[in-house]
Design a protein around this nucleic acid. Sequence first.
DNA 1: CGCTATTTTTGGAACGTTACAAAACAGGCG
DNA 2: CGCCTGTTTTGTAACGTTCCAAAAATAGCG
Lengths: 356, 356
Amino acid sequence: MNESRTASIVGGGRPVTIVDIARASGVSKSTVSLVLKGSRLVKAETRARVEDAIERSGYIYNRGAANLRKSKSGLVGMVISDLTNPFFAELAVGIENALYQRGFVPILANTNEDRGRQSQVLRSMREHGVAGIVMSPARGTEAWQLTAELPTTIPTVLTMRRVVDSPFSYVGPDNRTGARMATKHLIQLGHRRIAFLGGFSTMTTQLDRIEGWRDALEEAGITAEAALVVESMPTRAGGREAVRVAMGSPKRATAFVCYNDIVAIGVTRELALNGIRPGIDVGVVGFDDIAEAEHNAPPLTTVNADTLRLGGFAAESLFGVIHGGRAQTMSFIGTTRLVVRESCGALHASAGKEFV
Amino acid sequence: MNESRTASIVGGGRPVTIVDIARASGVSKSTVSLVLKGSRLVKAETRARVEDAIERSGYIYNRGAANLRKSKSGLVGMVISDLTNPFFAELAVGIENALYQRGFVPILANTNEDRGRQSQVLRSMREHGVAGIVMSPARGTEAWQLTAELPTTIPTVLTMRRVVDSPFSYVGPDNRTGARMATKHLIQLGHRRIAFLGGFSTMTTQLDRIEGWRDALEEAGITAEAALVVESMPTRAGGREAVRVAMGSPKRATAFVCYNDIVAIGVTRELALNGIRPGIDVGVVGFDDIAEAEHNAPPLTTVNADTLRLGGFAAESLFGVIHGGRAQTMSFIGTTRLVVRESCGALHASAGKEFV
DNA sequence: CGCTATTTTTGGAACGTTACAAAACAGGCG
DNA sequence: CGCCTGTTTTGTAACGTTCCAAAAATAGCG
């Protein structure tokens, strides 16, 4: 009874299939299929027999074949604009996590901000039959390109970067409020000339954050001068450049709101190199609260948006549209909170020191 | 002749298939298949007609279906132990790049050093029929687990972390020589008490790098004292901890070889906080040359292993075993080079300053 | 035991593609 | 015109699942 019918269920090196299992356990392939999906239509005894055969044979389920019939795959496309940016890496991890939790598996594409590459990978993902796509669009992606590449039949959620007029859901942090809080904090510390450093105006994210910066300034009755915005690559090197031009300007700022943390890191570094002590002589705040921020010299005051969780939301949001429930076009804007560390000078300021 | 037979090739919302194209262009599905794969068995005129239909219909190729027949998929599993570590993110980008170049698409899994998760994702990847797997094994993965989860029928290459006695190919940097060069550099700068900071002895990488550290010391006639090795998590926080215990020891080291760059960054930070100036009072070197290293305070002297390219090699190496050519078990050890910046104190030393 | 009701099991047709052998066509030549 | 030689095209059987209608087995009961 419990001795095996067949020592080795299948002869050749050929992969074991559902029909091998059927043969080995003396039932039809339909029954095996039933067992596989845990249907309780099958008698306990039969199930046991089949499960035993599965166990012994090293059978492995072929999702590709199943999808063909069911026409719904467990694959989800995850398109990331720049994975070497620690912020996006964290976002990706958040997405990936939520996906696995739900039994989906991500196909990864790192577009590296290249729109041509982005088109290619979108097509490739469609060929692989992804159930949906989560993507942070490459810089400068336009709505028309997206709609051309992604028919509305394929569930899509955009994350971190909005694409104006595109018909897709969006999940991202509240950039405007975040930047506003950060700027306000600097103002409360006594700063009046506050520059915005980094990013390009082709990125909605930068636009949003500049809005927030402007909001805070205007609330305090300070005019937001265009000259105080310095664009640059959103990288450490970009930050260094940006602050160099900012410090070269006639009316120097006493504080800097940076596009993101890596820019801010570049900024603090470049300042230090020029004998200006961030957090003491000058205030700097970042955005994103990446792992590095805490260990920077000085530790970065920044805006935390709970990136990991935001990634999770993006994935959940995708499931929303996959399961047809939620409408395609919906936005989730995550709340942000200011994390005060040392780069803004709060510690020194509270000790009585005043900024110029 | 050039007017369309059907305005809209397919009626319902049903996805367009090869047979819709066949019908629309008045040929058999075999011919369409031929056109799709660019066979020159088909007459130019026919090809044009078919291609036109494909164009107009928005047909998209179903790789899943094709794989079922061909039983070879364009999917490759990419298992990364910790994507939030910038080093691994860069490695992943390198792998991804090479994969796309060859028309393969990566399924991503971030195991987060969790072996249970690793087993799960390996199974899941097999179910999706990946053509092969590139993976940096989770900490503490044993050969027996791997061979249980990955029959040798599935092409696999391990990267960055060896698993002793496992039958798989391995691609990684020359950890030993790299660490040896870094240590030697510190010795040449006049250091004699050089500690090794970070990582755990359960990681082959740490073992290899410690070997290199020991090699350099012994070459210089210095005994490598076990007390000079301080283990810690391979993170920034781990680096801070490690250097704290190292500095608390009776015979303090004057220089630190760190397990990797993020540890080194933690180390420089903690030292600075205690009034000890890395690169002036004390030497620090890292390993990996991540993007951050250059922008650290002070910029990190470190060992560059060309991570991006190494990732590419891992992928290429996988193709080697996929295409049956190369034997399963082969190693590629990439060369490393020392990048001298400021954290080791080379600049000051050359200016005449001597270390204690 | 025969009958119905219920629980289990099962053939076989899909799903969208490829590969192969065979059929159809076209051109040249005796 | 018939035949031969390419050149194109095609029908059909896979590939490994799921789903459905229908068959088979079992149970309950008078």
